[in-house]
Design a protein around this nucleic acid. Structure first.
Lengths: 159, 159
DNA sequence: GCAGCGTGGTTGATTCTTCAACTAGGTCCC
DNA sequence: GGGACCTAGTTGAAGAATCAACCACGCTGC
């Protein structure tokens, strides 16, 4: 039980900034999205991932991975999105354990309508504060951190 | 209504990494802290802010600012921490609107016991993935983003 | 061909967070 | 000195996240 290595000044700055961003940014985007369409950032992310997937469907576990969520959380949210008519659940044809989540036309229309405003918000709240170099640095550092938190994270997959 | 400026590849990388960190990092630290002492990262942050404050107390609104939370959220959490004997509420002597939250001896003992493990976890899950230059870059970029989200954020105050 | 284990997913209870409504004390200013 | 408005904080209800328990299917080895 040796004395822990406390954070130095720069480490503390980096850590505090990250924790603050972590609470402020999702809160701000949640507010915007809730005003625009009564959904949360997580709801939006789920719809976005489906809209970018081939044929607009994904197995629940793949969708969970792409939205960095637990299967349980995703299951509850998909139930909610289903009630709004934006997503459908279907059994997988070849593996009866698997459920696939499909984006409906209505769901697609919703995200198409929301996306431009959301991108503007992301720029407004976040990217516009940064130079091109900052963006590059952040992408590099961010991916390192993601790799440490989850070695197989999908955003690190080749291509 | 002009065509929105979609994210370019690097912007997208930076954004996706940040969103992923945002869900993975607190989840991992919550799990660790919950195992160590049945508290969340936010609970820990509140205790930590009090422990670093002069005389170990702060007005609710200042504590809310330092933990990036709404007053409402803080109020509920302080009620919980109070029930565990870690925090006390007292009226402010000169302004009857203000409530101050005080860290008890028991609360101090709790955070002193938890801190070394928590710092190790922060290194383990996050800082150890980064070089010294990364830490500097992240501190710089992080503070820019915080400034954009909240101009008067406390971490930007000239001490 | 069936026992045992791992995978994929759902559910309900508990805990947390947010939101809107409200109390109450302070400040401005006429 | 009395409105009007602002600041600080609390509360209860509603919606969201987590956790543990659980079911069903598939694979493996015998």
């Amino acid at each position: 039980m040796t004395e822990p290595r406390w954070l130095n000044a720069d480490e503390r700055r980096a850590w505090l900034a990250l924790v603050s961003i972590n609470t402020l940014l999702p809160a701000a985007l949640d507010t915007k999205l809730h005003a625009a369409g009564k959904l949360s950032l997580f709801d939006y992310t789920v719809l976005a991932m489906l809209s970018e997937a081939e044929d607009r469907f994904l197995p629940m576990s793949e969708l969970a991975a792409r939205s960095s969520a637990s299967l349980s959380r995703l299951s509850h949210v998909v139930t909610k999105l289903q009630k709004r008519g934006w997503v459908e659940r279907r059994p997988h044809p070849h593996d009866a354990r698997v459920t696939t989540a499909h984006l409906t036309e209505e769901g697609m229309a919703t995200i198409v309508g929301l996306a431009p405003g959301h991108v503007e918000d992301v720029r407004d709240l976040f990217l516009d504060a940064l130079t091109e170099q900052d963006v590059l640095d952040l992408a590099r550092i961010g991916e390192k951190v993601v790799g440490r938190l989850d070695t197989d994270h999908w955003i690190l997959r080749e291509n």
